[in-house]
Design a protein around this nucleic acid. Structure first.
Ligand code: SF4
Ligand code: SF4
Lengths: 130, 130
DNA sequence: GATATTAGAGAGTCTTATAGTCTTTAATAG
DNA sequence: CTATTAAAGACTATAAGACTCTCTAATATC
């Protein structure tokens, strides 16, 4: 069980966008170079973030990507959910009701992690990284 | 990112062993039937648990698997680590030192989850499941 | 000691998910 | 109209997960 590379790329790209003071959008070409990853692949990842409303994109010459207003409150969890999906890490397929301790424990522990990821926002990240 | 099915099987098998009052070891055949999984596959999983010292096995007629003494203090995390490995969920490959906020956040959140999984022992599980 | 029974080890297969490429289409600035 | 850039879709490649089959080692029972 690992986070996908795509999640890694998404986090780094968003951090790059947050740190860029430019008011102009940044092209995927530029972003991809920093991460040493192919532009078309990164483009797919960015499109997911656009669909979740964290990033805005503009086509055409001088186009590119930028964070949407309100970006400061985007959390790590938002980004991770956008890439990995929102479903639970533990899925047994069955449902043996409320007396099932296994599921209870697994879900609670997962919730602890998510709580922490939800607490960490881009604002915090940008502040301590600049 | 999901837990593997093997982890699911391991948790359920260990729970089965914990709930079985029998002093005799239980064969993989029997255990596999309850989970509806192939015995040889489950056997591989059990072998991992044996190597981690949580389960003891005895070959030969009337052989099988049983929990080792001290099983009450085995935690969910122990079982999960035995199957999934102990390495971090987030690995970026590089190491940009202590100023890297991304890794810091990811590791801390992971630690929160593990903390909770460490707290939940088989003793708790067996008590509430019997 | 022979035989039946059961775990362990290893190689090999099947399937699925991740990671990535290539090509085409849509939007937009100049 | 043309250059530039994002979006979409189909496709391929690689890797990991989820098994299966077969053979070997241990052990209880007779
Ligand atoms: S016991 Fe719990 S974890 Fe196991 S199959 Fe039933 S609901 Fe799922
Ligand atoms: S910035 Fe942090 S997470 Fe990113 S590559 Fe460097 S060490 Fe890894």
């Amino acid at each position: 069980m690992k986070y996908s590379k795509a999640t890694n790329y998404a986090l780094h790209t968003i951090l790059n966008l947050a740190l860029s003071k430019s008011s102009k959008p940044i092209g995927v070409q530029t972003l991809a170079e920093k991460l040493n990853v192919s532009p078309t692949y990164l483009s797919k990842i960015l499109t997911k973030l656009v669909k979740e409303g964290m990033v805005s994109s503009v086509s055409g010459a001088n186009g590119g990507y930028s964070l949407t207003r309100g970006w400061e409150s985007i959390s790590f969890l938002d980004i991770i959910f956008a890439i990995e999906g929102k479903s639970s890490l533990f899925e047994c397929g069955l449902d043996h009701g409320p007396q099932c301790q296994i599921q209870k424990v697994m879900l609670k522990s997962e919730e602890k992690m998510e709580e922490e990821l939800r607490r960490q926002t881009l604002a915090d990240l940008a502040k301590t990284s600049e």
